[in-house]
Amino acid sequence: EVTIKANLIFANGSTQTAEFKGTFEKATSEAYAYADTLKKDNGEYTVDVADKGYTLNIKFAG
């Protein structure tokens, strides 16, 4: 089991951190699915992958 950390960075400057656990593939998939649910209210997003994929910096356009 691994932990994927998602740093969520919103257009208004606020930030939030979420963690997803499971296999690497499952946790990564859940992180992207979570970002997709936030897209409606926060706009499109870009992802900067860090720490060999264990950290995702997800920035929303607003």
Rank of each mutant, 00 (worst) to 15 (best):
V49G: 04
F10S: 03
A35S: 05
K26G: 15
N57A: 05
E19G: 08
N57Y: 13
D48N: 13
A33R: 13
T55Q: 06
T46F: 15
Y32K: 07
K5P: 01
A27T: 03
K59N: 13
N7V: 14
L38C: 04
D36A: 10
A6D: 01
K52Y: 15
K5D: 03
D51Q: 05
G22E: 03
A33S: 11
V2Q: 07
K39H: 04
V49K: 08
G62D: 08
V2Y: 09
L56H: 02
K39V: 12
D41S: 15
E30C: 06
N57K: 09
F24M: 14
L56M: 07
A31E: 00
S14K: 13
D41A: 15
E30M: 14
Y34M: 10
F10N: 02
I58C: 03
I58A: 01
K40Q: 11
A6M: 12
A6Q: 03
T15P: 06
F60N: 00
T3V: 11
T37I: 14
A27H: 00
L56I: 12
A35D: 00
A18D: 05
N42Q: 11
K39I: 08
V47F: 05
L8S: 02
F10K: 04
N42S: 10
T55L: 12
A33K: 15
A18W: 14
I58Y: 07
K5A: 09
A31R: 00
Y32G: 02
E44H: 14
A31S: 03
G13L: 13
T15N: 11
F10H: 03
A35E: 00
F24H: 09
K26A: 15
T15E: 07
T23C: 04
Y45H: 02
Q16D: 15
G13D: 07
Y34H: 09
I58L: 06
L38F: 15
E25P: 06
G22R: 01
F10Q: 03
N12R: 08
E44T: 13
A61Q: 11
E44V: 12
T3G: 04
S29E: 12
I9K: 12
A11S: 09
F60I: 01
A61R: 11
T55I: 12
L38N: 03
K21C: 05
K40Y: 09
T15S: 13
K39T: 07
E19K: 11
G62A: 13
L56F: 05
